[in-house]
Design a protein around this nucleic acid. Structure first.
Lengths: 109, 109
DNA sequence: AATACTTATCGTACATTTGCGATAAAAGAT
DNA sequence: ATCTTTTATCGCAAATGTACGATAAGTATT
């Protein structure tokens, strides 16, 4: 039996941070989030237009961002309006901030 | 010819952020960085001991962190001492901070 | 030079990610 | 009911990531 990462236990914060980092680990997804950020919200089609990528590819990236919790979709038939998920965005912000500041501010880990 | 992500152009900041995010996209690497952070520096062997993973696996994770620029190794024969790379650490910190604050502070992107 | 110690690298296996085109699904408009 | 629009999902191919054991490489010690 091969060992998988699932067999190893990490702190909840560590796993959450890794999850958010994974969502940000592709320039397309960062650009999507920047775009969503600047527009507050927008439709899938708007995002597809700013990339030389297939609609299915963008849809897949959006799905990953949704699964990671960084965005949320709202039905506006026949379109879908995507927005940043503020709660999780703030959580991710806090986790990254905490992570990078640890060596400066928080000495006990 | 299949298109690859390399054919698409992103802002330098976007690519850097994605690179750092990718380095953080695995809980083992986050835990390694937390450990390095708390100890300032340590040897490969010390890190291997805190994980139920093969030495070669840890070495590979260290390599990725080194390639991403988040850590650096110094020869202390027969060991290798690893430390956080402060300059790049600070750059990553700045990039993430900037990214998450954009919707709050910096409205023009 | 031979040995011991530490760490990197190689080769392999399997899983996941990333991209595409084609198709399905959902809902409004005709 | 049918058509159109929009977006998600499916199936596939190629690339990348993650893990392992075995081996190589580098250096100190004997």
């Amino acid at each position: 039996m091969k060992r998988t990462t699932k067999d190893i236990f990490y702190k909840d914060e560590t796993e959450k941070l890794a999850k958010y980092a994974k969502a940000l680990a592709h320039p397309t997804r960062i650009k999507i989030l920047n775009y969503l950020d600047s527009k507050s919200c927008c439709f899938t089609g708007d995002i597809v237009e700013i990339f030389p990528l297939a609609q299915s590819t963008i849809s897949q990236h959006l799905k990953e961002l949704k699964i990671a919790g960084l965005i949320q979709g709202e039905l506006k038939p026949p379109k879908i309006k995507y927005c940043i998920n503020d709660d999780n965005w703030k959580e991710a912000q806090r986790l990254f901030k905490n992570f990078f500041n640890k060596n400066i501010i928080d000495e006990n880990e």
